[in-house]
Design a binder for these strands. Sequence first.
DNA 1: ATATATTTGTAACGGTCGGTATAAAACGCC
DNA 2: GGCGTTTTATACCGACCGTTACAAATATAT
Lengths: 203, 203
Amino acid sequence: MESDIATPVKGRPREFCVDKALAEALHVFWAKGYDGASMADLTEAMGITKPSLYAAFGNKEALFHKTLDLYETEKLEYTRAALDQPTARKVAEYYLHGALMTHAGTTDPKGCMGILSSLACSPEAESIKADVLGRRASSQRALVERFERAKAEGDLPAHVDAQGLTSLLYALLQGISVQAGAGATMDELERLVDTSLALWPSR
Amino acid sequence: MESDIATPVKGRPREFCVDKALAEALHVFWAKGYDGASMADLTEAMGITKPSLYAAFGNKEALFHKTLDLYETEKLEYTRAALDQPTARKVAEYYLHGALMTHAGTTDPKGCMGILSSLACSPEAESIKADVLGRRASSQRALVERFERAKAEGDLPAHVDAQGLTSLLYALLQGISVQAGAGATMDELERLVDTSLALWPSR
DNA sequence: ATATATTTGTAACGGTCGGTATAAAACGCC
DNA sequence: GGCGTTTTATACCGACCGTTACAAATATAT
């Protein structure tokens, strides 16, 4: 993930780090959503002017897609790591605790950037919605397959609907994000997770 | 709920029905959220001009609070009716099926107006967020008490955390709304509900 | 008829939106 | 030092935002 290790071409060198600026932009989109984040919000947080932003990232929409890449790679890593857990229950545990840390932690904005930006959708931001929904669908497909495998391996009862269980787990993640964004305390959300896991189908 | 049964005062009578206009405004806010709904969107759907809207409803914010009243009394009736069900399981069933009809049905916009308007929050719309969150908290409190009663009546195991179970059920509602707004099919959401009820703590 | 009160449509207000034209500044290269 | 190239900062663009002044229109009351 290196960049700017040396000035490759001639011309005036840029005075800011693209990756740092992108990380700042991510925080703004995460906290305010695509529509809610203004160019003024972005440039102020990124510490650059608007022409610099446009030269480096294209426009607001292109910048959003790049921050969404960063968000998925860095902050949603837990959704991929969860799939490697040995049992369906441990997959769910990893998912739920990962959501707790990522969407209700103290370092980053509360809530889920995907939900925020896919819901508040101005007509012109259809491409943003499509991007978020596409990534979510692919992530959900992987979880369905993981639960199917769990049924074949016997650590999930055969009568369980893998598709339904996936939608259920994602609904819990979305609920956690919504409630975290609404100001729920960490204690409340931990009890939500504990109660969910207490109901999880046992092998 | 009567209104405009007779012209009470002098002056030119208004040429539109306040209740009809409010119902149209509700649909706009429901579909687009508070920030996403522009005055042009509202006046077009309501069939009135901007000065008429301001004279009848105050301003955009006051109009929103009035539509939120209408939303809660008409569309969220199921959350109150659910509490009258005889057992905790039937409460949950009523809640989940109500959410399915209300937030994923075909007559009204998909999703939940409260979630949409509380998440996408411009800085000046803090009053909107506070209104939505206050109503949600009071509704959640009633559900906690209902589950406490269920534990006392014996149709919910004593080891269950009523607060956690309430957060869990609300998370499911929020997940259903998010997924409905994202274009999930009715079949998918029904399987989500069925899977959730299959895991529900049995007496 | 006149006066008063309210709603109507038009047209505009200042402010913010995303996006850009322009020219000065800072570099490598010759 | 000049030249080409890229980034910088300022200042501005047209479009839309929520909101309102204003005057014509329509009602009741005198």
